[in-house]
């Protein structure tokens, strides 16, 4: 087995790197898009009360549907390739980001908001200088959850032709090649793990005040 894995890397390191970067790229793009949608949507839900129920219900339902199902449901609508896969991943990643943004913005203690207003901050300044910074820890947690989910689900995205580590895993399944399965599986696990570490470090750096 060990030999097989060594052999694989000797002969296919270029191919491996392509799959790794494809996997990384689609995950990163999906995460960024999910943040760009999820955080403003969360803000709107807290700012305009009427929106909260319908929006969170919609994404709540989305959350129950398994990621593979979302991927396959995309097929007839958008066909195959990286774009429909990314859309499915984005849909998957929005709920944790949205929910955490809402919780973070909503749970800022009222007396802090009152002090902020009482000191003469404008409504906008209260959002930018108090509410968002105080919601940031929860928003980052949501992003971490989303990143881990995206990296795992991007494996399935290979099924609709998006490339990535999933290619290797599905090939391994098809050919009964345990070595390929191991390489693919461990790579995905390591990517997930690195994403977790990355967010952990990010929190440590930008949320200095949380240390005390």
């Amino acid at each position: 087995m060990y030999h097989l894995i060594i052999d694989y890397f000797q002969m296919n390191s270029g191919r491996f790197l392509t799959m790794l970067t494809d996997h990384f790229r689609i995950s990163l793009c999906s995460l960024l898009a999910a943040v760009l949608i999820g955080v403003p949507a969360g803000f709107c839900c807290v700012r305009f009360h009427v929106l909260q129920k319908p929006v969170s219900t919609a994404f709540g339902i989305l959350r129950i549907i398994p990621s593979l199902a979302i991927l396959l449901l995309m097929l007839p609508v958008l066909g195959t390739g990286a774009v429909p896969a990314a859309i499915a991943l984005i849909l998957l990643a929005i709920p944790p980001i949205l929910e955490n943004t809402i919780a973070g913005l909503r749970d800022v203690p009222p007396f802090l908001l009152e002090t902020a207003g009482g000191m003469g901050m404008t409504g906008r300044q209260v959002w930018m200088r108090v509410r968002f910074p105080l919601a940031l820890p929860l928003i980052l947690t949501g992003m971490k959850t989303a990143a881990v989910e995206i990296i795992a689900s991007a494996t399935l995205a290979a099924r609709i032709g998006a490339g990535g580590m999933g290619d290797l895993i599905f090939t391994g399944i098809g050919l009964f090649r345990t070595d390929l399965l191991l390489i693919g599986g461990i790579s995905v696990a390591l990517m997930s793990f690195s994403a977790g570490i990355f967010f952990h470090l990010l929190e440590k750096i930008i949320l200095k005040y949380k240390r005390f």
Partner: peptide, 18 residues
């Protein structure tokens, strides 16, 4: 503008933790 010209302190103090 009015509020910026008035000092305001409450029981919970309201220091911004971040």
């Amino acid at each position: 503008k009015l509020r910026r010209r008035i000092g305001y302190v409450i029981q919970q103090i309201g220091l911004f933790p971040h």
